[in-house]
Design a protein around this nucleic acid. Structure first.
Lengths: 356, 356
DNA sequence: GTGAAAGCGCTAACAG
DNA sequence: CTGTTAGCGCTTTCAC
């Protein structure tokens, strides 16, 4: 083209250093350049077979040459398919409203990988539940995502249920109970709590403590499993609703032990993170692990094997959990009624508990 | 009305509680229901002042009642402002192409928080650099995001430079060197490496090792800082390009020590994660820390204070780093030429190094 | 095979 | 203050 600048509509502003001065920003621009219609360009770029091979290649070459990329917003709007999955982290009962839980972060990593692999983009939302279901519906109803993955249920079980009643492509990480509407993938936490307590008892613990905040369903289930096991064995167990501000943890342990009027010799931590803090406190107080006190965690994060001593814990399969969540979401996106999944927890014995 | 799905009864006056199932999915639906035009509805929902207060409230009530939310795709397309920031994690030189690095995950958490606070949505992309700049331009050129935040530069410095040349709203976490085009926020890694090695030397170490893969710029800088400090003190230092597969780490340490023909008594780990692995290996081999070998990490993740012994490390300010990145991105979105930021590292002495 | 035309659902002038 | 009128940039019939 001899004169260059004319460009009906909206050509941009940056003169291109590679020679050709037209900025190609739309299908129409490219169509004009190729001497075809926008329809053809659209088809060519989409790799549709109905386009003459030669034309298609010419157009694709032209697009590459000008670094042209179709506007996704327009494309998604028109085709009514976003190719985006929303991942939302409900920060419900969390005291400090900040994404920091290493388990959730790890799950997020796996989910993002899994979704990318499946060709989806990921839209991340941190949600501060506010008493309404708005935090969730803001994303399900935005038209921005094809489906939603929830990292945890926090204390928002009812809200999630309500939304799931009319919004199918929704899968949550977390607890599943009989009759629940929403699709959940998670570990059998009651069983996990039970196994943890039983292991402690089997290896000699006689006075247990469960450490962790039980406002979230999952942790509460772990507590129930652990206390049931303790009750069955006739062993006392006390619940310590620990805050993650680790400075206070030592005091909390001490006080709990005092108020319960006995010395704890076995601790079920609600997560590996809590367990690590416990280990740290115990060390500071000069209590030997597992000699004086045995400790068991929950999650089996990669870090669990690096603590000193290496942490005995209840393993959750994060990787396969993420895979299962994405699989179910995809089925639901295709209209299938994918159900929930409760995965078995697994005891991983390391060195914070005594050999039996 | 010829068609449509209006139900029997109620087409008029009382805002119904009777559960009329008219699905209101578009502005037009709502407009019809409210007896106004789509324009007015749009303005009312946007809270624009130019609408009669009474009308606005009526419309908003109606919207709430029907759970209506404007389609974001359409809105964003029309207004040419997405309100979305892309966060991309380049998985360049990483052996296992999976988002798992706890430092990056932590930074991601902070960034997501910061952006949410600023009213932005977050689009997360994992990118596997492929020799071209496609991995980055796919997101900068998608029309899906207003700007992009990069979590690390991996070994893609040149690619990022090239894109930054014509795409302004881009901020990366990582290294900054004189004359660099792209905006980077990060720690002074050379200085950090230097401080780490100096601290080890000051507290008595005489034979150093630096552990970590140096294909990424940041780690390479840490290595350069450490080795410069060692050279200046006349202390030998060997580089061990460690893989994170922790099983091999013990062997790697041993072999490096052997091939260097001396026994290492001071280790600069390229990250806290590596340091934790090192601590673990050392313990298995029965070497005392800091008695036989001193260790210093890098990052000061929350976990660093929980290791046994608690880890001496070089602190990076992740929280303020995230804040700085978002601030700069915002300035750039407004056309300001926000520059890079190199933050000072800080030595945090705990118990894996000897008291001086 | 390709062009023309009709919107996806919304916002933003521009009138009134 | 509110209705009308154009599109945002793309996909997708429907003809030719």
């Amino acid at each position: 083209m001899a004169n260059g600048q004319e460009n009906s509509g909206d050509s941009g502003n940056t003169p291109d250093t590679s020679g050709v001065p037209v900025t190609v920003r739309t299908l129409a621009d490219l169509a004009r350049l190729a001497g075809v219609s926008t329809g053809t360009v659209s088809r060519a770029l989409a790799g549709k077979a109905l386009v003459n091979t030669e034309t298609r290649e010419r157009i694709q070459a032209l697009a590459r040459e000008h670094g042209f990329r179709p506007n996704q917003m327009a494309s998604k709007l028109r085709s009514k398919r976003t190719g985006v999955v929303g991942i939302v982290i409900p920060l419900g009962h969390e005291k400090r409203q900040h994404i920091s839980d290493p388990f959730f972060l790890t799950l997020l990593g796996w989910l993002a990988d899994e979704l990318t692999e499946s060709g989806y983009d990921v839209m991340l939302s941190r949600a501060l539940p506010d008493g309404t279901s708005d935090w969730l519906e803001r994303v399900t109803g935005s038209g921005m995502v094809d489906g939603v993955l929830l990292i945890g249920q926090s204390d928002q079980f009812e809200v999630i249920e309500a939304v799931a009643r009319h919004y199918r492509p929704l899968v949550a990480w977390g607890a599943y109970s009989e009759g629940q509407t929403h699709c959940a993938v998670g570990t059998d936490n009651i069983e996990g709590g039970r196994i943890a307590a039983e292991h402690l008892i089997a290896s000699g613990a006689r006075k247990l403590a469960f450490m962790g905040e039980i406002k979230g369903i999952e942790i509460d289930e772990r507590w129930r499993g652990a206390s049931a096991a303790a009750a069955k064995a006739g062993i006392p167990i006390v619940h310590i609703p620990i805050s993650l501000a680790s400075e206070e943890m030592g005091a909390q342990i001490a006080e709990a032990a005092k108020s319960a009027d006995f010395t704890i010799d076995g601790i079920v931590a609600a997560s590996d993170l809590i367990a690590m803090n416990v280990l740290h406190c115990l060390h500071e107080k000069g209590r030997a692990v597992p000699g004086d006190v045995q400790v068991i965690g929950f999650d089996d994060l990669p870090l669990a094997s690096l603590t000193m001593p290496p942490l005995t814990t209840i393993r959750q399969e994060i990787g396969s959990g993420a895979k299962a969540m994405v699989e179910r979401l995809r089925e639901r996106l295709e209209g299938a009624p994918a159900g929930s999944l409760k995965m078995p927890p697994r005891l991983v014995v390391r060195e914070t508990t005594k050999a039996v």
